[in-house]
């Protein structure tokens, strides 16, 4: 879980935030790792959320995610929960999905196959493509 080194050390994370009907969508493109995770955290802190929002993280363009990246996703979730908002991951790459499943986080995040599905109000999470134990909606996880 602590892998941090990659063959390249160039920061290659691009973040874009847009507003959808369901709330903010954060597009994460490139590597979410030890070198870049702080960028996501900083960006998230500046996104206002209300209890009606669902914070969607669009991972379609995410090429790599290590444990620090996972931590940043968890921080995003904490940020959303603090505002009473929901949180969802959309288009999770296969390897990351496998990791989420392995560490049980597929039970914590609402997972959608695509951003379109995630930003459609009332859509139920798909739970990703892996056969696994039952997914729980994000409402379960309120602390």
């Amino acid at each position: 879980m602590t892998r941090t080194n990659r063959t390249t050390s160039v920061k290659t994370l691009t973040l874009a935030v847009r507003q959808a009907a369901t709330g903010p969508v954060v597009e994460i493109v490139g590597d979410l790792d030890y070198d870049t995770a702080a960028d996501l955290r900083t960006r998230l802190a500046g996104i206002p959320l209300t209890a009606d929002d669902r914070l969607v993280m669009d991972l379609a363009g995410m090429e790599f995610c290590d444990s620090t990246g996972i931590t940043a996703l968890i921080a995003a979730r904490n940020h959303a929960l603090a505002a009473g908002a929901g949180v969802a991951l959309a288009a999770v790459p296969e390897h990351t999905l496998r990791v989420l499943h392995l560490v049980g986080l597929d039970q914590v995040f609402a997972l959608y196959d695509s951003t379109a599905e995630a930003t459609t109000a009332g859509n139920r999470p798909s739970g990703g493509n892996l056969p696994s134990g039952g997914n729980r909606p994000d409402t379960q996880a309120a602390g």
């Binding site: 392995l102 560490v103 049980g104 986080l105 039970q107 914590v108 134990g133 996880a141 602390g143």
Partner: peptide
């Protein structure tokens, strides 16, 4: 809690996982 399952190697060289599905990362949820 969220860890890869332990692997059991039997004396006859068969292997099996000591499956612990659904265990979550420690420290995330109350």
């Amino acid at each position: 809690g969220g860890h890869p399952p332990a692997l059991v190697l039997r004396a006859d060289r068969s292997t099996e996982y000591l499956e612990t599905p659904g265990g979550l990362l420690i420290g995330i949820l109350p």
